[in-house]
C-alpha cells in the first residue's frame, strides 16, 4: 500500500535527481562564464559544458595498454556516487523518500568512495602525473574531510540530527535566528568546497600546467566517454556541494513533501525558482572568489585546510557556549 504522499515523494525524488543531473553542467558553465567576465574575456557561453560532453561522448575512447578494469569502471562508479549524493541532499524538497538511506556522515562517505576510486584509477596507468595527482588529491582530502565532518557536526548539534532533511527543517522552518556557530561553519565549508572541487587557491580547474594541477593530473589518461562521465561527475559534485551549502546555510524557500500534498502546484515552482536564484548567486560568488584568490603552493594547503578545521571546531565550541 502506498499512500499518495509516498507516491508523490518518489516522483519528486526522481524528478530532483534528473533535474540535478541535467542542471549540473549548466552550473559549471555559469561559473566559467562568470570567471571569463571577471577576467575581461567574453567567455564560451554557459552552454559550453554540454557541447563538450556531447563532443566527448561521440569520440572513440583510447586507453593505455596496461589499463585495468578498475580504470574503466571508475568513471561509472564516480558518476553513480555523485548521483546518489545529489539524491540524498534536499535540493528542491525535504523529506524525499531516499534521504533516510544516508545521513551527512554517509554523504561524506559517498564523496570519499568516489575519491578513492578516482585516485586508484589515476595510479592504474602508472604515469608520473597520475600518481602525482592521486597523492595530492589524497593529501587535500584527508585534511578537508575532517573539516567537512566538523561543519556537519556543528549543524547537527543545532538540529539534533545528522539527517539532512531534519537539519534543513530545523534551520529553515523556524523563526529566523542568527547562528554565530553556523557563520564559522559556513566559512569552513567554503574552504572545504574550494579544496574538494579543485578550485583556485588549492587547485586550478583550468590549468594544464603539469606541476600545479591535482584533479586534472588524475584524469589525464581518460578520454571520450570516460572523460565525459568524469567531467559530468565533477559538475555534479560541485552542484552537490553548493546544494549542501545552501541546505545548511540558506535553506529558505525549500519545499516540504508532507505539506505539499495539497498545494504542490505552488510550492514546487517556488522551490525551483528559489534554487535557481540561489545557484546563480552562488556560482557568481564562487567565480568572484576564484578571481580574487591566487593559487597557493601545495604545501600551503595543509595550513589552509587546517584553518577550515579550526573554524569548524571554533563554531562547535561557540555553539556550546552560546547555545546557538
Amino acid at each position: 500500500m502506498m499512500s499518495s504522499n509516498q507516491a508523490l515523494g518518489i516522483l519528486l525524488q526522481i524528478y530532483q535527481s534528473l533535474l540535478v543531473v541535467a542542471l549540473a553542467p549548466l552550473l559549471t558553465g555559469w561559473v566559467n562564464q562568470c570567471r571569463a567576465w571577471l577576467q575581461n574575456r567574453s567567455g564560451p557561453g554557459v552552454m559550453q559544458p554540454y557541447r563538450t560532453l556531447r563532443k566527448l561522448f561521440h569520440k572513440d575512447a583510447v586507453i593505455a595498454y596496461n589499463a585495468s578494469l578498475l580504470f574503466r569502471a571508475t568513471p561509472y562508479i564516480r558518476f553513480g556516487c555523485m548521483w546518489l549524493a545529489a539524491a540524498i541532499i534536499p535540493i528542491i524538497a525535504v523529506d524525499l523518500p531516499f534521504s533516510p538511506a544516508a545521513d551527512v556522515i554517509a554523504l561524506v562517505g559517498v564523496f570519499a568512495l568516489a575519491r578513492v576510486f578516482i585516485a586508484l584509477a589515476a595510479m592504474d596507468i602508472g604515469t608520473a602525473f597520475g600518481t602525482l595527482g592521486a597523492r595530492r588529491e589524497m593529501l587535500v582530502s584527508f585534511l578537508a574531510e575532517p573539516a567537512l565532518l566538523m561543519v556537519f557536526f556543528t549543524a547537527s548539534m543545532i538540529s539534533h540530527s545528522t539527517q539532512l532533511p531534519r537539519i534543513v527543517e530545523a534551520l529553515a522552518q523556524h523563526q529566523f535566528v542568527l547562528y554565530p556557530s553556523l557563520a564559522f561553519a559556513g566559512l569552513a565549508f567554503v574552504i572545504v568546497l574550494l579544496a574538494e572541487n579543485a578550485r583556485i587557491p588549492v587547485d586550478n580547474p583550468a590549468t594544464h600546467l603539469e606541476l600545479t594541477m591535482i584533479h586534472e593530473a588524475m584524469i589525464l589518461e581518460y578520454s571520450a566517454r570516460h572523460l565525459a562521465l568524469v567531467e559530468w561527475a565533477s559538475s555534479l559534485k560541485l552542484f552537490a556541494y553548493i546544494s549542501i551549502g545552501i541546505a545548511l546555510f540558506l535553506p529558505y524557500g525549500i519545499a516540504e513533501v508532507g505539506a505539499m500534498a495539497g498545494n504542490w502546484g505552488s510550492a514546487l515552482p517556488l522551490a525551483i525558482i528559489a534554487l535557481l536564484v540561489k545557484m546563480v548567486l552562488a556560482g557568481a560568488a564562487l567565480a568572484l572568489l576564484e578571481a580574487l584568490l591566487a593559487k597557493m603552493r601545495i604545501f600551503r594547503t595543509p595550513e589552509f585546510l587546517g584553518t577550515a578545521f579550526l573554524l569548524a571546531v571554533l563554531g562547535l565550541l561557540i555553539h556550546f557556549l552560546l547555545g546557538a
Partner: peptide, 16 residues
Amino acid sequence: MTMPYSIQIINLLASL
C-alpha cells in the same frame, strides 16, 4: 529559544 535580534547580533559580533 528565540532571543531578541539585538542579542543575536551581539552574539554574532562576539564570535567575530
